[in-house]
Every structure is written in C-alpha cells, then in structure tokens.
C-alpha cells in the first residue's frame, strides 16, 4: 500500500471499509501465489509461461496500487450513506482471472511438454 495518509474517520461499527480493504489484500496475495505456481510450469512449457506469470503479477500490483483509493472511497461512501458500486474494479479483476485461465488451458492443451 501507499504511504499511510491521514485516513478520515467513519461511524461504521461493522468496520466495512477495513474488511473490504483486507479482502482486496487477500486477493492480491492469492494472485501472487498463482503467479508463483505458474513459475513451476517454466521448465516444462517454456517462455510462454512468462506471460502468465507477468499477467498475474501485473494484476496483483494493480490491485495493490489502487487499494488506498478504494478504501477512501468506501469510507466516503459510508459517511455519505451513498456509494456507487465499483464496476471497473470488479470487471477488471474478473477479466484478469478469465484471461489467466484461458492462457492456462492453452498452455496445457497446445504447448509441448519438455520432460
């Protein structure tokens, strides 16, 4: 995350902004784990796997760089009692996972296996 800035307070006893921020953080970690496991394919399937590793790392980095923005947005939304849903973030993350899965299927089915 970015350097800690002064966070505005909020009156939500359910701690929704923090929990949502941490959920994004866990998703970043899962994405990095996926990237690490893709590395296991490198000796078997060659350089193409590098694209998968890079795609997963780029997604994880993008999520982490935008966390502060989403946290502020959530706190603001709680304080205003109104918040438009974040279509861009959800659509991007889902698209990344779909692309990773497609590239993975392509790797398994069409790339030669070097023992």
């Amino acid at each position: 995350m970015a350097a800690p800035q002064h966070l505005p307070g909020h009156g939500d006893a359910g701690l929704q902004p923090e929990r949502t921020d941490l959920a994004w953080g866990r998703t970043t970690l899962s994405m990095l784990v996926a990237a690490a496991i893709f590395l296991r394919w490198l000796p078997h399937h060659g350089w193409f796997v590098g694209a998968l590793v890079a795609a997963a790392i780029i997604t994880a980095t993008s999520i982490n760089l935008t966390r502060q923005r989403r946290l502020h947005r959530a706190i603001h939304g709680i304080n205003q009692e109104s918040m438009p849903p974040d279509v861009t973030s959800t659509a991007s993350v889902a698209a990344s996972v779909v692309i990773l899965a497609l590239l993975g299927i392509y790797t398994v089915l069409f790339l030669p296996l070097n023992p």
Partner: peptide
C-alpha cells in the same frame, strides 16, 4: 453502501476460490 461493500467482498471471495482452482489446475 454497507451492502455494496459486502457484495464486493463476496465477489472477492469467489475470485479467490477461482484462483485456488487455477493454482490447483497448474499444480
């Protein structure tokens, strides 16, 4: 907004489930 945030967290839980399947497939 609490419902919107809860929906977002549920979405992320599904995404992590999907990532676990992805890692399982590679493994």
């Amino acid at each position: 907004p609490r419902f919107t945030l809860a929906n977002e967290r549920t979405f992320l839980a599904w995404i992590r489930t999907s990532l676990a399947m992805l890692a399982g497939g590679v493994a």
